[in-house]
Amino acid sequence: MDRGQALKTTIPEQDYMTSGHIACSGCAAPIAMRYCLKALGEKTILVVPACCWTIIAGPFPYSSLKVPLLHTAFETTAAAASGVRAAIDIKGDTETTVVGWAGDGGTFDIGIQALSGAVERNEDILYICYDNEAYMNTGIQRSSATPWGAWTTTTPAKHPEDKPKKDIIEILVAHQIPYAATATVAYPHELMAKVKKAKGIKGSRFIHILSPCPPGWRMSDELTIKASRLAVQTGIFPLYEVEKGRKYTITVPRKEGVPVTEYLKLQRRFAHLKPEDYDIIQKNVDRAYDRLLRKTKQSETL
């Protein structure tokens, strides 16, 4: 490489997030927001419920964002996004993308009623869930997005989480929405391509982003990208999309021969697990990935 030249990146340089946000170091949530806004552009209105991003956006009178932001009550993201959509539509603006941006608690748990209601009405909104797999803003309590075997402050190591992570994409797919997809910050081009694709579709769109949380996952803060990548390579968090509730496409296949332990051992939230627990997780991940492959093969054309 010619060292005299500035590094060229294929990621657009235009930013709609500022430096100086107050996320914890290594947090994937601001990285995800930054990429998503690059893909969405300035004609974007964000609706954010109580979640880590309430803090990351900055306290009054500061803001780390260059797009309008409406903070809303914990359980209301999708309903509030519906309201913004209705208002700007009636005023003649059908171009601006209205984005609900919520954590896993606000999506999988307390906000799922409003989310189900909004997507059933096929509201013209993009809902992005950044999923750090527990209530991290309140200090690491389990949510229905917490994976089997994980430690949290409400699932202590002696009695770790004993239920599987809720399959949120399948819940959204069951509503037959135009577009549902998963993404991680380890594959930024892929993430941005999905956001851009979603932006171009009318109706309800849902993107589920795995969002590693170094303090909550009990891991070193430089491991966020590595953990995001291993989640995909092990098949723990497969990257795929589902169009119109029927066409499944795996967008980044998992890597053969990467065991789940490579992902799990990065994080001390799984430190209490025994070898037989790893076997259980490996079997469950393999089974789920096979199921996804079958759905891809059996999936209908659009």
């Binding site: 209105i45 609706v47 409406l70 809303t72 009550a73 359980e75 209301t76 999708a78 309903a79 509030a80 996004a81 519906s82 309201g83 913004v84 209705a86 208002a87 700007i88 539509d89 009636i90 005023k91 009623q113 409003a114 189900s116 209601g117 909004a118 059933e120 009405r121």
Partner: peptide, 27 residues
Amino acid sequence: KARYINVESEHSAMAACIAAEQAGART
């Protein structure tokens, strides 16, 4: 000439009204 949103609860009704009003519409 209004947008009528058939929300799934009163809680969402008020959430949608709040957001729509914040976007400048009479709700």
